[in-house]
Design a binder for these strands. Structure first.
Lengths: 148, 148
DNA sequence: CAGTATCCTCGAGGATACTG
DNA sequence: CAGTATCCTCGAGGATACTG
């Protein structure tokens, strides 16, 4: 998909722009690892089994796009680790939604990882609500409205 | 990323399995179009600007994986359209989460598309809750627990 | 440890002609 | 209309050697 196709075919799609940033084969996996507390290059590389040059590239892109930030954790020699920015942390609902979908539909056994409220240990719930009706919505009750 | 790398590097990741199904450059865009009411081959092809052989391939894979179903809408000649299954409809929270993230972080102007509760027209809200505490959770309050 | 620099392969994506 | 069949290109991903 080239950029022209994007412009003409899927104008103004937030999904398309989002895919441009994180829609490759590794970025979401890198982010998931950072969410789970892996912050250093070698940790990430070992955990994911990603090629080193690719990890370098993905981390740089994530930093350039404001999703991660590179912060020093020691001097002499200076070493950095990668932390989520607010923008990155805000990807959490999307990541969670994908995990839950995979848990529900792509496995036979119990979900390999369960997300819990750390204060009480209860598995979390992921909902779409109407703030005005105060109702949890079914996908069929959702419409899309174009601005423009 | 080959399959061996996936197995060894990211064992049991629901995200990895989900990406195997829908993690390419077009599938999510196709699904978004189906969610928005495009159900026929030519509608999808024109709207997305996707190459015809790619659209054929993506639709077949989505049908094979149980995300879409192919239902006839006329006979002589028989024609089909593509409809979401329950499995496909259940991707809605993930799609919505991505759109909202893109709306918030990848645009300057107003969001190009707003999702609304069709009964009352109010823009929807997307939350992670703890069903036991009945609280909306911040990403920092979420922990992940591995099942062995 | 945390990368950078090279080189290579293979397959995803695309253009286009053809068909019941 | 709704595809299938071919052929091609280019870039994502990967292996590996090197470095402050």
């Amino acid at each position: 998909m080239n950029h022209a196709a994007l412009e003409s075919g899927v104008p103004g799609s937030s999904i398309a722009r989002t895919l441009d940033l994180i829609g490759d084969r590794w970025t979401l996996l890198v982010l998931r690892a950072v969410f789970r507390g892996r912050h250093r290059f070698t940790e990430l590389q070992r955990d994911l089994g990603i090629a080193r040059n690719l990890l370098t590239d993905r981390l740089h892109r994530l930093v350039d796009n404001g999703i991660l930030e590179r912060v020093p954790y020691q001097e002499r020699p200076v070493r950095h680790e990668y932390r989520l920015t607010d923008m990155g942390r805000d990807l959490s609902p999307a990541l969670i939604a994908f995990m839950q979908w995979g848990d529900r539909w792509c496995t036979d056994g119990p979900p390999p990882t369960v997300l819990v409220h750390d204060a009480c240990g209860t598995p979390i719930e992921h909902t779409v609500r109407c703030p005005s009706c105060d109702d949890v919505l079914d996908p069929r009750e959702i419409a899309s409205r174009d601005n423009g």
